[in-house]
Amino acid sequence: MDVLRTEFTLNDMPIEVTLPVRATLADAIRSTGATGTRVGCEEGICGSCTVLLDGRPARACLMLAAQARGREIRTVEGLAAGGRLHPVQESFRRHRALQCGYCTPGFMMLAVGLLEREPNASPERVRAVLASNLCRCTGYAPIVDAVLAAQQALAGEVI
């Protein structure tokens, strides 16, 4: 099988992987042992595999690993810093925004991508963006609450 070497940055660390040509970015990330990026459909619908690609939320299952060459990828493993959970992670716990937790990393990366780029996003905008991922357990309200609360927390931190 044809393989290809690709280099990218994963959570601020330079990474080099050698994988079959058809491996996706999700395969590449997971092959490094960072398996928090979950795969629910492999066809871009569910959003479980959402990561930040140069700061924007992207479906890691829809890109080939080769397309990530030279790009900056952030995943759930890169959220906590200095032994502290990211405010979005804290907020998901506090608001019980997870049950099985399979969708959680994808939702958190989607939220972080949104809140970093649009810290003042309206609640309607937050809800609309969160509608791009699927959760089968929570019924969504706790996820929306968690992200809105995290937005407040992040605003407090910036000031």
């Binding site: 398996t35 928090g36 759930v76 959970l85 998901f92 716990r93 937790g101 399979y102």
Partner: peptide, 15 residues
């Protein structure tokens, strides 16, 4: 059992 689910370390079967 939430912490491993929010920090990404939880092990599902694919992992």
């Amino acid at each position: 059992d939430d912490l491993p689910l929010v920090d990404g370390s939880a092990m599902f079967i694919a992992d």
